[in-house]
Design a protein around this nucleic acid. Sequence first.
DNA 1: GGGAAATGACTAGCATGCCAGAACTTAAGC
DNA 2: GCTTAAGTTCTGGCATGCTAGTCATTTCCC
Lengths: 247, 247
Amino acid sequence: MSAGLQGSAAWLGTGPDAGGSSRRPSKASHVYGTIKEAILSGELAPGSAIDKLALCERLGMSRFPVSTAVNRLAFEKLVIIEPQHGSFVSRISLPDVREFMLIRRAIEADVAAEAALAGSATLNDELDRSLRYQAAAAEAGDHAGFYRLDVEFHQLIVQSLGLNHAAEVLDQLLSHLERVRRLLITPAGRSQTTYSEHREIVRAIAARDPLAAAAAARGHLERTSAMFEVFARDNPKLFAESSADHA
Amino acid sequence: MSAGLQGSAAWLGTGPDAGGSSRRPSKASHVYGTIKEAILSGELAPGSAIDKLALCERLGMSRFPVSTAVNRLAFEKLVIIEPQHGSFVSRISLPDVREFMLIRRAIEADVAAEAALAGSATLNDELDRSLRYQAAAAEAGDHAGFYRLDVEFHQLIVQSLGLNHAAEVLDQLLSHLERVRRLLITPAGRSQTTYSEHREIVRAIAARDPLAAAAAARGHLERTSAMFEVFARDNPKLFAESSADHA
DNA sequence: GGGAAATGACTAGCATGCCAGAACTTAAGC
DNA sequence: GCTTAAGTTCTGGCATGCTAGTCATTTCCC
């Protein structure tokens, strides 16, 4: 993390204490972040069981914080708790992905329009800077870096409007989408396409054209959805039939 | 779930165990529902403290289920936990309401378009039936009944498409909006207006015109937002300056 | 040998006890 | 009378022990 447009995994801890003021982080929040990162990184594969006792031992704490953290994750549907049976990392179904993208598209399109209406000069500057970084990352073929910038780009617009709740919803959606994304190989040249699509969004926002901004954002995310579809079609085994089963 | 248009407060328990199969409801889930209903009904006013011990005594259980339930509510931002200080029912700020409506508008507009694309005959039938009930309730001046039908109407569209995640997001938004709605007096004649707006949405969906459906849904919710604005302007004391403070 | 029942190990849920920290109260000092 | 500081009493966080329920394996019976 650190340099550049930092913030790498800052959005990981958005769920729980983010709302409150900056208290000392509780143990529960810590293990929450740990498990969540493990799930999102794929270290804990979808469907795998979560051994709470082992976690307690590894993290050196009692079962209480671990259970609390797992409960939070269950609330986010990242894990599924089966009473008196076990806790499992939730699987992702293709319909889920489609639905997540539908919601994301709807919100981000409207937010883009809102940003165009607001017409913040500082936002435009930040977007421009982000675009330059993206261009550099795309050119250098730094996929990991580009992805971070991609996530950040979308966050920039939302947060500049002070839409914390929308940001939170989008974060949760993204946390689910992130898992499937890790399974996929970003196709060569996709960064360039994404970059130009981002540029179009920025242009519409800078031009204070809400309709164009919404359309650009919508089109961009529709193409992202299409990419998901292609990958799902090519790798059907990676997705669960239904989001319910875990075996 | 089941037939008819009933289901009054079924959406209350959407948060936690809804995802899992139908196990026996845990105590924590029970108090979760209890507190949530109390908050939404206004029995627990925004800003008021939650006395966990008293709750334990009144419900006849230990602190654990109560704490778990409060934690869940904190996750939904319905209560704010201040460590070593207390748990409080969160206040609602006007910006929050605006943002909730923004998100709701975005999602529901897209969902309406999706419903128009899907073109389900059974959905059209159910919507027609709901409209007839709404007309009756509006005519009879049954505001409470009309509100239930209103909520249900919007749910019908989402659930008919199997968009469970979107439904959940909307439920959470609605649970927040519900609190302020209770403070407001539904203006006379609003039911009739709402009814005609709903009818327009149904018409567009039945005509399989996604653009018109989205526009109708958007317009409907924009007018709802405008109503909120008017009430907020007339009753500024009901809203918190910021969503952070609780005193 | 195959099937059904019993047993064992595992899980989550819950109760209880203790600790640290913050706010309020009260009393002492100026 | 006002300020300040110490003490009390709240709060939530955490550790631990126990209970009940489920799953898997094994064992016994047919």
